[in-house]
Design a binder for these strands. Sequence first.
DNA 1: ATCACATAGATTGTTGAACAATACTCCAAT
DNA 2: ATTGGAGTATTGTTCAACAATCTATGTGAT
Lengths: 233, 233
Amino acid sequence: MTATGDRIDDLPDAGDELERSSTAERVADLLRTHIIDGALAPGARLSEERLGRKFRVSRNTLREAFRLLGHERLLVHEFNRGVFVAKPGAEDVVDLFRMRRALELAAVRVGAQAPADAIGAIGAAVEQGEAARARGDWEGIGTANMAYHRAIGGLLGSPRADEAMRQLLAELRLAFHVMAAPRDFYAPYLDRNRRIYDLLAIGAFEAAAAELAGYFDAAEDQLVRAFTTGAQA
Amino acid sequence: MTATGDRIDDLPDAGDELERSSTAERVADLLRTHIIDGALAPGARLSEERLGRKFRVSRNTLREAFRLLGHERLLVHEFNRGVFVAKPGAEDVVDLFRMRRALELAAVRVGAQAPADAIGAIGAAVEQGEAARARGDWEGIGTANMAYHRAIGGLLGSPRADEAMRQLLAELRLAFHVMAAPRDFYAPYLDRNRRIYDLLAIGAFEAAAAELAGYFDAAEDQLVRAFTTGAQA
DNA sequence: ATCACATAGATTGTTGAACAATACTCCAAT
DNA sequence: ATTGGAGTATTGTTCAACAATCTATGTGAT
């Protein structure tokens, strides 16, 4: 009954499914979620005592969760003053777009060597967005747009790039909460998303990159304008 | 004595100089340093009790430091098992180069809009490297090469990109410790660094990008080869 | 009124001890 | 050689305490 013809070695490696998680990690996930969808407003102070009581965790565990989130720029830690939800400004939006341009344009340009179904994932996000528009689900359009750009980043086939994209988009979402974001912000870009996807699907990677660059220019301009006018307060 | 014509607003913003730091941050910095220059070997286990005794900090503070370093991929946290110095493999090197290509090539391509002395910083790193070679300081060549590529990333003028570059290069340095890195690994690239800088200095950004791409191909190939042969153990 | 200063209260920074839960080691048994 | 189990070591988490720092308030002097 030893290793006689078994196929254990052929089994897929154990994924993260079976990875248990610590309390601090779960708290960090919870905080991230609440920050991203606005339950915790930008600038809000996260009191150790109050949050600890709310989540039923000790201050030490909570502090570990804070440190876990520290590098994601969703929280700001001020020594001896506390932890606050980040409050991105116009400069942050500009910087976020710098990074997006670098990563996403690079991803599109190497689209020819993209992993198996990476382009298919982009198409799925396009249709997800169009479906949301069809039923007037503005929230859904925003979500689909996030998925779309994460899928674009996925063309790089790089775990590190995937995580970077996740972070960038999360931070951008936070920036949306700072200004009074119009519910149909993303709607105008749906057609462009479709166009870029079509170009990718036929292998016109440079043309897709040019089109994507146009999207960045337009979206960044619109965002920065919204910042420097309305949300100045 | 109120705000009569003072120039307080013209003063430079308070930098991080006056930012006090927590014990956990200092411990994290210390650990990062030790990991990067090899005092803590890849794969080494960081015992809470032993390290806490060594650094004279409590386990809780030490755990905060671990979480602070968590996102930098220099440490690996395995639940209920402990924290280990990361041990990058060949796939990690490949992924790191994917990111470097995306970021550094993008940086070079937008070199025309780079901040004031960004290109000068690259030149300084080139000379720093050549000076180190002149006195046979191989360690110094490696350090200068890091500075060189960080300066390349600096062309983007993006705080987020700067931090990303810092992290990528730190991780790459860790990968060097995994394999038996020859002391003169970087020496062959000094001339190429100089050539790229000269192209940047005259504004030939696309040519510089092509040259840089060549560097990536050569360096990645050499690294991966070193991994899959020698350091297989 | 405004400023300076002192005081008190609240919050964070850090420690140490304690206990539960899990992993690791080693030895016996089959 | 593998399995099972007891005992030990380490991590996960909480709690309580205290020092250090921030924040708000109040008082008095100009």
